[in-house]
């Protein structure tokens, strides 16, 4: 996944011109990347970071921003999909920004990620129990209820949220709000 072993555009073009195959590790593949950025807590800083991705044509799947323990510093978590090589280059360009204090591509590390999702579904007496059972399996909470709708809160990795949303579809989801991912490198690694 790291860009180190992947080939530069010149190397790829040369191999192709020679009719040589490009090895799986050599080509840069599209991957999802989770990038954590520490930056000055200002709107201009945020803008510059997002702009850099936009300028290279990256779609940002999610962006979250919040203050850190130091209120003058915010932390952004960016989820995007792109070629590792170009992402590594964008990360170097991010590092060049004066408002950026630290950039970390978590994708190549062991990390934990969480997302929060609020989801409103209609219910009736005949499916209420079923809904709540599913919610329980996903370790979610009911945060609001009316006579005909319930609002659930669940947190977890994006995959779990996707699975839960999948389960809820057949009840006719009225509204979904997802927070976008936040992520952090694991502090301790065992086994190596």
């Amino acid at each position: 996944m790291s860009e180190q072993n992947t080939l530069t555009p010149q190397q790829i073009l040369r191999k192709k011109a020679q009719g040589e195959a490009i090895g799986p590790g050599e080509q840069t593949h599209r991957h999802r990347h989770i990038i954590a950025v520490l930056l000055e807590n200002s709107i201009g800083a945020l803008n510059r970071v997002v702009n850099l991705f936009a300028a290279r044509g990256f779609n940002l799947e999610s962006v979250t921003v919040g203050e850190t323990d130091d209120p003058s510093i915010s932390r952004m978590t960016i989820a995007t999909t792109g070629e590792s090589r170009i992402i590594a280059q964008v990360n170097r360009q991010l590092n060049r920004l004066i408002d950026v204090l630290e950039v970390e591509d978590l994708t190549s590390e062991e990390y934990v990620e969480r997302e929060l999702c609020l989801l409103k579904v209609p219910y009736a007496s005949d499916n209420r129990v079923e809904l709540l059972d599913t919610l329980k399996i996903f370790q979610g909470k009911v945060v609001d209820v009316t006579t005909n709708t319930m609002t659930f809160e669940i947190t977890g990795p994006a995959k779990k949220i996707n699975a839960f949303i999948g389960m809820m579809k057949r009840y006719g989801v009225e509204e979904i709000a997802r927070s976008g991912r936040v992520a952090m490198k694991r502090a301790l690694l065992f086994g190596d």
Partner: peptide
């Protein structure tokens, strides 16, 4: 400078001295 990238400087190893890390190995290894 390079024109068609794949046929530029075909026999050369490259040393690159630059202040900007994002310009290293951008196009050419």
């Amino acid at each position: 400078v390079t024109g068609k990238l794949e046929s530029w400087a075909p026999h050369a190893k490259i040393v690159h001295i630059d202040i900007d890390p994002s310009s290293i190995s951008k196009n050419v290894y």
